[in-house]
Design a protein around this nucleic acid. Sequence first.
DNA 1: CTTGGGTCCTGTGCGC
DNA 2: TGCGCACAGGACCCAA
Length: 293
Amino acid sequence: MEGEEMPELPEVETVRRGLLPHLQRARIRRVHIGRPDLRWPLPPDLGQVLTGAHVLGLRRRSKYLLFDLDRDEGLLIHLGMSGRMLIVQPGEDGQRDPAILPRHDHFWIETDAGTRVIYNDARRFGMIDLIRKGEAHPLLARLGPEPGSFPAPSEDSGDDVLPDLAPVLAGRRAPIKALLLDQRVIAGLGNIYVNEVLFRAGIDPCRAGGALSNVEIKGLPGQIRDVLAEAIAAGGSSLRDHRQATGELGYFQHAFRVYGREGQPCLRPGCQGVIQRFTQSGRSSFSCPECQS
DNA sequence: CTTGGGTCCTGTGCGC
DNA sequence: TGCGCACAGGACCCAA
């Protein structure tokens, strides 16, 4: 099975990089709004604000995309569970993946170059909003720290200051899996990469956050950063390949060590364990009973 | 404040 | 082949 799309932080960052060459300094000449709402109503003045605007930059915060415009407001997009950004050049309409149904193209913008950037979201769990410059948006206000910086190869590499998780985990009785999924604890982790991180860290997802040792807590941020950085690096290359073939963005393939591998052998050399799947707070957890405690 | 569960919505894959 | 069901990347919201 190929072509799964997984909008966690690495995929959003990959989308950002894919969109950048099409949107940087571009002018938006047309806007299409296919329906008045996704998860929530779209802002009534969305089309008015975007039409004629120049895109000054494209940033990411956690799993959110932020479009900086020469306007009082910027554009804020979250892909939810099934959101994708598609790039369609003039005359390329026939090359779309037939599995991505045009009836879920809920929103798109067209640049002066004729490039269409389409927001497609079957389940409509995504969000699109405007964000006033200099003001805190309620969706962003309570996000925890970024798990590092992930500059594109062409961008300046910043020195990462990894978050210290000790204060937020102290005394917490909730499972570490649930806490790392909580965007207020650390921003950007989703179900797939939480499972991958805890496998690499050798930590049982069921353990209470407050029960982790100092060594485990100190090691987690580095593990998180490494898993996400590897996924971004892998996503970048497959993005290029895929775009040549179909013109789409947002696809990423990765060899997960535990996610989706229920009943299969643990990949740690010499380990005889079998990957188990179970449910935690309504979501699938995967772990190796031999490696994780 | 912390926590656990329900909810939004469509598509896909599996067992029967 | 058709049908029903479980499950899927997220995160808000509310009850206890």
